[in-house]
């Protein structure tokens, strides 16, 4: 029997740091925010995905995991133990959706978009990617961005452009997206628009 991987070394401080990074990521869409994670979760769950889940999910905020994560039972066990969150199989019930395989298509239309009266009741998608860059890529505009901002994720999550485009027509409903690479995170809240694609 393998031992359960540890959670945050200092729960109060670590959770605040991770939240701070995510808050700044949503406040400044497209900008790289440092995300220090000292976790060593069961793979294929990345330390950054694990940190975001441990900082923000609990029994009031269920988690959905993609097929690659679901294939490894230790992942769900780790998340359940440390967050107390339910791991749901229905995407529409999830507050957070963790995606370890961004190149595989997601049941995007099934995640919660919120309602016209309560648009906040929507799923936040968290993608693990290997690299994030501000040097080249897509041009973003929207609240939180003075003028425009350049951003690229690799691999580019499948269907991400469709999600961002749908957010424009659905607003104020929509899906908020986080992209987490080693040691950093980028936010694409539903207000962010793609003006130029590469």
């Amino acid at each position: 029997m393998s031992a359960l991987a540890l959670g945050f070394a200092d729960q109060v401080t670590n959770a605040q740091q991770i939240f701070g990074a995510v808050m700044n990521a949503f406040a400044c869409p497209g900008s790289l925010q440092p995300l220090p994670s000292d976790l060593d979760p069961p793979r294929p769950l990345s330390p950054e995905l694990a940190a975001i889940a441990l900082a923000l999910a609990d029994h009031e905020a269920p988690i959905w995991i993609d097929a690659r994560l679901a294939a490894e039972p230790a992942v769900a066990e780790f998340l359940r133990f440390h967050t107390g969150a339910t791991i749901v199989s229905r995407p529409e019930e999830a507050a957070f959706a963790l995606v370890a395989d961004p190149e595989r298509s997601l049941p995007v239309e099934r995640f919660a978009l919120g309602t016209a009266e309560y648009p906040d009741r929507s799923t936040t998608l968290v993608f693990a990617v290997s690299d994030l860059s501000e040097a080249e890529g897509w041009r973003l505009t929207g609240p939180g961005i003075p003028g425009s901002r350049i951003f690229l994720a690799s691999p580019w999550p499948r269907g991400l452009a469709d999600i961002v485009r749908a957010n424009r027509t659905l607003f104020p409903r929509g899906l908020d997206v986080l992209l987490a690479a080693p040691d950093c995170v980028v936010g694409l809240p539903r207000t962010t628009r793609l003006v130029e694609e590469i």
Partner: peptide
Amino acid sequence: FAYLDEQTKRMIRRAILKAIAIPGY
């Protein structure tokens, strides 16, 4: 730290994130 328990902070933090994503809501 900062008076509130961690579960309360998480709940408020989630609300703050959605508030930033939907400005003015």
